[in-house]
Design a binder for these strands. Structure first.
Lengths: 156, 156
DNA sequence: AATAAATAGGTGTATATACATTCAATATTA
DNA sequence: TAATATTGAATGTATATACACCTATTTATT
């Protein structure tokens, strides 16, 4: 894919945007796709997808505690991800373990396996490296982006 | 879904980010998901998805000319979208027409139908309205976002 | 002109998303 | 306590994404 294209006009072969605001929404959507694509290509050799990586990272945040599916779900970036099925695939690869909750029989609790921890450490290193070399962003710019994006999503 | 949550920390229930840059990448991914979600919910009553809407919009850009699949593909925001199959569904709904190209027998050419034009006009109105009411962005901020996002995707 | 290479579109498979539904377990309340 | 409502996880279906592969056609090379 054409992941080296920088200007939005080139990326989507269009130069007529209704407004700067309209262009910004397309730019956000395109940049998110670009980020997911470069991250996924980094993860590919380890046989995990971007979403599976996301779940592993969330589990890492509580490790060695177990987490129930609901608590993983509400930490996902894409809220409507279907976490039970993502977990299915991680269980098959033996990167996580599923067990019944002793407190609430409706819940299942998930935890990282040793392979899960190992693969997460390696891939996180790779992703961090990628971010440093490919995503050009000064800390000051990042602060600005965070502010602008949180503003556009509404006021509290 | 929780589309009214503004702060990233609340949205993904996490407050430890490695850096502002790391937080910014998550913020971009989350904001893109948020944008797609609110747009899709607007399109739902018309029975079309965000991606189908995207294809219709691209076709509108050249209307009444026909476009081949490749030219639609390279204008898509998400480059790996599978355009032939998105077109399949638009053909079933009679929003676009597919025909053989007279110039190159490998190509198929696509064009909007009258229903396609009509639905596109209505939905575009709805989306524009949504953008005005829900996406809080001054033109000046949009210019900044565009610059920051294009910078982070690299230099030419 | 004959052969090789490239291109356009489509298809197959695995995974993910979006959304509705189901089922068991828990919580609420009357 | 019994009846009702809510919750957590899983499942079913349609659509989309990611990527490999196939076939017909066109272009390039010899």
């Amino acid at each position: 894919m054409y992941i080296c294209i920088v200007k939005l006009e080139q990326a989507i072969q269009s130069s007529k945007f209704k407004s700067e605001v309209h262009k910004a929404t397309l730019n956000i959507l395109y940049t998110a796709w670009w980020l997911k694509t470069i991250m996924s290509s980094e993860l590919k050799e380890f046989g995990i997808t971007h979403e599976q990586y996301n779940v592993l990272r969330i589990l890492k945040g509580k490790h060695p505690e177990q987490m129930c599916v609901k608590d993983i779900s509400c930490r996902m970036i894409e809220k409507s991800s279907n976490v039970p099925r993502i977990i299915d695939r991680l269980v098959i690869k033996k990167l996580v373990k599923r067990a019944d909750s002793p407190f609430d029989k409706r819940e299942t609790v998930i935890s990282l396996t040793q392979s899960g921890i190992t693969i997460l450490e390696i891939t996180t290193g790779k992703i961090n490296e990628l971010m440093e070399t490919t995503v050009i962003m000064k800390s000051q710019d990042a602060v600005q982006i965070n502010q602008l994006l949180e503003n556009l999503r509404g006021t509290e």
